Simulated scan of single mutants.
Amino acid sequence: MKRLLVFVCFLIGVPAFAATPQQKQRARPCQDQEAQRSVWPQGTLLWGTGRTAVEKEMSSVLVSVDLDKVRLRGGTRLKELRIEEGRLVAPSRARNKLVGSVFQGTASDGQRVEVALCAAEPSARNPSMVWYRIELWNKQSAAWENPCVATSRVPSPRALVVQGVWDETGARQEAPGRFTFACENGAIAKCISWGYAPWAKKDGHSLAELHQACTRMARADYCGDGRSHTRQDNPIDMYDDLAVLTQTTEPSRGWQPERASFEAAWTPEGAWCLARTREGQALETILAQCPGRFEPGANDLGDGDRCTVRRKEGLARRALLRNRSYGKDE
């Protein structure tokens, strides 16, 4: 059994990726990258890449990538590329031989973008998992840039390969021939790092739905519509039905259990029930944001976790994940 205390620290960068006429001379991808990019604490990230529009929280310069439109360095088309447990695999081709490949991707506004694979690095904690360094062609600056938003903790973020795609409501969908480059500071990648790899199993049970529930929990997406209700550097403690992670009960430098209280239980579609909100908004505010979804009603989940509003009958799926947090004023 594992315990994991998480400081939710998502920062948003706003690089400019507007389309302009392409210049005749193009720089080569995968040259030296700047270690730090400008970032601003403006909310939470799902994909972990910069926004296409400043005013839209759920927008991204890179939402999905095509698996069958890949060209190797030199222009040769790469065939039969597939994904195995979060790794890009090509028959008879070593992992490092994929470096320099250029993929075709799509931004949230539907614009096509080019994505270069610059490095493949096995995870130090789990060598079977691979981190990729990627760059995106920015037509405005006519340069290859790391699209992953940096933070002071992770100044040069990488990305994980994840099967499927996420839409602007935060919902995951199977999409044959497409996948997600999930950047290190986004919820998709963070939930994998915390132990919920969607390709993994625990006691014969797939962790795919737990991973999706985690992405909702990390962003405090109560309504399951992509809207986040959290803030920077808010410590959270999560635990689940399969005991991939268990509740943290011992105090440490970064966590004081006596200060924390139960916040919510989670499904892949958002909160199953709530005791309170992470930022201190009234529960009535959440009920108004997603009318018809919740109703007043106490639910005792055990271990001191008690809800005050819950999903309406007939709409609820079984909660897979729960969390505790300090709350805004604690």
Rank of each mutant, 00 (worst) to 15 (best):
L207V: 10
S92A: 11
E135V: 05
V309A: 11
Y239V: 03
E174V: 03
C273D: 14
G280D: 07
R306Q: 13
V61F: 00
E174F: 08
F179R: 07
A119W: 01
E145C: 02
I188C: 01
W199Q: 07
I236W: 01
E85A: 11
L46Q: 11
Q111D: 14
V130R: 01
T246R: 01
A200G: 08
E269Q: 05
A265E: 12
Q256G: 12
F103R: 09
M129V: 12
A220G: 07
P257A: 06
D203Q: 13
G226I: 03
D203M: 11
W166C: 09
K202D: 12
S141N: 03
G254E: 15
E55Q: 07
R77F: 14
L62G: 06
L62Q: 06
A243G: 02
G327T: 11
R172L: 13
R87K: 06
R95M: 15
Q247F: 08
V99P: 03
A120G: 04
C273L: 13
A182W: 00
E258P: 03
S261F: 02
C273Y: 09
E263V: 06
P127E: 13
V162E: 06
Q25G: 10
R310F: 04
K202A: 15
C118Q: 03
L72K: 00
S206N: 10
G74H: 06
T180E: 00
C214Q: 02
T52H: 01
R153M: 13
G43S: 00
L81Q: 13
C191F: 03
R95C: 11
S325D: 15
C214S: 05
T169P: 11
V102K: 01
S60W: 05
E269N: 03
E121F: 00
S141C: 00
K312D: 07
L274V: 03
S59F: 00
V63C: 10
F294Q: 08
C307G: 00
G86N: 04
Q232P: 02
